[in-house]
Design a protein around this nucleic acid. Structure first.
Lengths: 203, 203, 203, 203
DNA sequence: GATGAATGAGAATTCATTCAT
DNA sequence: CATGAATGAATTCTCATTCAT
């Protein structure tokens, strides 16, 4: 067996943290932050609740780390999609597809964000939620307005309302679209893009 | 000063209950059920937390009463709309309009339902959430499928997905559409009906 | 038996608080603040530790209340003695006598102050310790310097050092002079005044 | 690079121990024993808290070692001064001077002793505090009574009270007399000896 | 000698709930 | 109806200590 180098040990440590963060995300997503106790998390990690504090400074710090890394990852990918410079319509579709991919890959972080972010955004230490959300909103608005200018999207609609409509429709799917079920990110994407593009009415 | 008759006292009691339920709904909608303490509620009602138990048997009973009366009212109105026997398209629009009206009138109950119902539906004592939700889903599905049959709605779309899409889009607006702001139920209805009907794409 | 008036009830409540404060003062004086648990205090009060929080908002709040009322009472009496306008020598003796009387009456508060105040003065919420102490020091310095001017006290001594010397000598007696023992406030006063006045050397 | 011999390593160990003891003494003197955590000590020593246990068997063992070496050193010097066989007055002055020298050299040990010894004396493992203190008290009493017999000190005073008075006055100065400030051990000695000898009154 | 992960006991505090008055 | 005191269980967090590596 190979010796443990310092780097490998650091990795192990990081693995433990990552593992605990995943457990916490799952529990918090399904029960809510308040209703999830540190003991719940520790139990699932197979350690005593006090031992969690060897890895994290507080329950809140766990929540913050989950949300921060989720938001960072999401925003980074959104920026890449925007920077790719496709047409508004193509960029729009890519954003939607990436959102469903994110829900498929990180349903817990998405669910947790959906349930807790509105309240948390007002709490000290979570100001970053506001900042990142604002940037994400700006990206969507740029795409929507770009599409209205280019003639791809209807000019009669209010971009601000359309943004909220898209945001809520998309991310709310985390409540029922769970990986491993009947639907995949790709199939849900197709259905939702169709609804977003064309609406319900025939013709 | 005239003495309170028993009937008058019962009325006062009823008013007090209603008032406390409103306070509780507001707090639970904004902070979540777990994070809202009975003391929070009692403080806002101007009484001590123990005194709440003259009006309600438990914290959970308060939550149940809020949700039950909300669901009863909503479902009753939905049944009326369905029973009115309009075309699928007209019934659809009426359901959407009534949803926004409900959000305008009872934003706290709607918000509370959005945040807590998924988790609560699995708890004993809240089985009614499942029953009522199932009936509401059936109504929407009847309207959607009716519209597909009649040619009003596109037949290519999956009714189940469309239902979830509508449900989530609609009720999620409670997060940003607050009565007294820029938008009214009527104006949001118009925007959303347009998006639902026609989608985003031009032509 | 007399009916409980609202005032009497308030008194009862106040009695309970006072009783708990006395228990806390005794325990903290003998074990130190950190080493005294809220359970220690609650046990002696015959209630559960959580029930303490019905009367006080925190362990620290108990400490603060003890120290604040002690300091307020002491300073008020010192001001009275100063305001009485006696000669520096008479005022000096009266201050010393009152200090011993205070130790006799409130040994726990004095002991607690001796043990914890130096550290606490730097903590937020305990700034009042600095303020009150500064005023007490000013009173002693006024008396000492007044006595030097009037010729009652030796002019060769440093008033600042003399103040510290008196303060420490006086209040440190709380460590061994406990009411009910061989000595009374009056007898210790006499001995200490003799030592302060004349020192140890013969002639 | 030369290998460490066992002796050299033992020396290093001893230096490390001494360094840790100094850190612990400083922290315990300023915060109290209960309020000082082994992590506080380890942090300042630049190691992890668990690593302290390579040097000391427990937190209490650190405290004991600090106090024991302090008491041993102090008592040894007091015995020397007594054995020198000077007059009571000269011996008295030498004891006082040495006390201030000790405060100047080891303020942390003195402070720690002042704050914790009363409580610790009752704890198992710290019985030596009683023994050493008793011997120190005996030395002072011998000098005081010797001075009363020889006519150097006033016979009217109670030797027991005078002892406590001297002890408390002297050692309490550790609270304000810190090396490197306005005063040196020599200057404070002079002031205090003057106050002890002659008191405050003129003539 | 030191690390890093963990333990286990106990700390302060919170909170839904009860009940005599 | 409401108070005020209390309960009892649970919660977050701390901390001295252990131990394999």
């Amino acid at each position: 067996m190979a010796m443990n180098t310092r780097a490998e040990r650091a990795d192990q440590s990081s693995e433990r943290r990552t593992q605990i963060l995943a457990i916490a995300a799952r529990l918090i997503a399904s029960q809510g932050y308040s209703a999830t106790t540190v003991r719940d998390i520790a139990d699932e990690a197979g350690i005593l609740s006090g031992s969690l504090y060897h890895h994290f400074s507080s329950k809140e710090a766990i929540l913050e780390e989950i949300l921060r890394s989720f938001m960072d990852g999401l925003l980074a990918r959104f920026e890449e999609i925007l920077a790719a410079g496709g047409s508004p319509r193509d960029t729009f579709d890519a954003l939607v597809e990436h959102a469903f991919l994110t829900i498929e890959r990180e349903p817990d972080a998405v669910g947790l964000y959906q349930n807790e972010s509105a309240f948390l955004a007002t709490q000290t230490g979570f100001e970053f939620l506001h900042e990142k959300s604002a940037r994400i909103e700006a990206i969507w608005l740029e795409v929507i307005r770009g599409g209205q200018k280019s003639g791809a999207f209807r000019q009669s609609m209010d971009a601000g309302i359309a943004y909220r409509f898209l945001r809520d429709s998309l991310w709310s799917t985390v409540r029922w679209f769970r990986p491993g079920g009947r639907h995949t990110a790709a199939s849900v994407s197709r259905h939702y893009l169709d609804l977003f593009h064309n609406g319900l009415l025939a013709e």
